[in-house]
């Protein structure tokens, strides 16, 4: 017969309570993690269900291949390509500005700047991140485009070049900050190895530190592309909201985001095919950023630092 030991049973009871609390905490933590996942699935669900009526009216073939996007016209035409071309062109211009500038800034901050200079420049750079994008939009429209028009008089007031350049300036801190973190994470022993071989600071930075930080630098670029594709205000303000199938930066155009925001502002009646079209455009945007994320994961795996 088992002898009852009150001492042990009390200790056990404590244990049960402790386990219960532990379990509760675990569930709470899991739930908060699940929220993000659920929201993502919710977004995908809404995007798909809301765009279904759209794709009943417009064939997928027309949507993906037609080069005219005229939801406001008498003769409605829904070809996503003009919006995609606008998005890609402006993002491309932004990257042409931001990738070299951001990378050089990162190299300077990580490899050349003294501690004091770095601690001064970094906060200023991060201040740039805090500027509302609407300010950047008017900056493009009222300052950058007029300057560009002095150089190139035929440039229309609404064009892709101005907002592209301004978007590039906006992205610079993102690239600089993430790439600098990646380069600073490269161990000092690696730099010492290069210096010991007689390499200069610049040679060390370019031929040893940057390759060692490849995954982080690529991650910075991908973050910048996502940021550019998703950017709305600058293009809505300064690129002119005219869907235009062109990759020519001196023409005006609309991006996917600019179209979505214009509809949301009430140009089209709620419930019609035109309105549903923003969900179809949203899916395209979602797929673009999702594939970038996957690309980012892949590069991170492929170029993982092994020092």
């Amino acid at each position: 017969m088992a002898k009852k030991n009150p001492k042990i049973s009390r200790a056990l009871a404590k244990n049960i309570r402790r386990n219960f609390v532990e379990r509760l905490i675990e569930i709470a933590l899991m739930l908060s993690g699940l929220i993000a996942v659920l929201i993502t699935f919710g977004i995908v669900f809404i995007l798909v269900t809301e765009s279904l009526p759209f794709f009943e009216a417009v064939s997928l073939k027309e949507f993906l291949t037609s080069t005219v996007w005229t939801p406001n016209f008498e003769k409605k035409n829904y070809g996503i390509l003009p919006l995609v071309s606008g998005t890609l062109t402006i993002t491309g211009i932004a990257l042409i500005v931001a990738v070299p500038l951001g990378t050089i800034t990162a190299v300077y901050l990580s490899e050349f700047a003294s501690h004091k200079i770095r601690e001064t420049i970094k906060p200023v750079l991060e201040l740039l991140v805090g500027v509302p994008t609407v300010v950047f939009g008017y900056f493009a429209l009222l300052l950058v485009t007029p300057i560009l028009q002095k150089i190139y008089p035929d440039l229309p007031t609404f064009n892709m070049l101005g907002p592209g350049i301004v978007m590039g300036v906006m992205i610079v801190p993102y690239i600089a900050s993430v790439a600098e973190d990646a380069m600073r994470a490269v161990p000092m022993s690696m730099r010492e190895g290069a210096y010991a071989m007689g390499a200069t600071r610049f040679q060390t930075a370019v031929s040893v530190v940057m390759p060692a930080a490849t995954s982080g630098i690529v991650a910075a670029y991908i973050l910048a592309v996502s940021r550019g594709i998703g950017e709305t205000m600058i293009v809505a303000i300064a690129a002119g909201q005219q869907p235009n199938f062109t990759f020519n930066p001196v023409e005006s155009a609309a991006t996917i985001t600019a179209y979505i925001v214009s509809v949301a502002l009430g140009d089209l009646e709620h419930g019609g095919i035109g309105y549903q079209s923003i969900f179809a455009a949203g899916i395209v945007l979602f797929i673009m950023t999702l594939s970038l994320n996957i690309l980012g994961q892949w590069t991170r795996k492929k170029f993982t630092e092994r020092y």
Binding site: P187, S189, M190, E192, G193, A194, A196, S207, V208, P211, A212, T214, E305, R306, Y307
Partner: peptide, 8 residues
Amino acid sequence: FQKPNPFP
């Protein structure tokens, strides 16, 4: 060096 530090 103390720890092998080959370049990437």
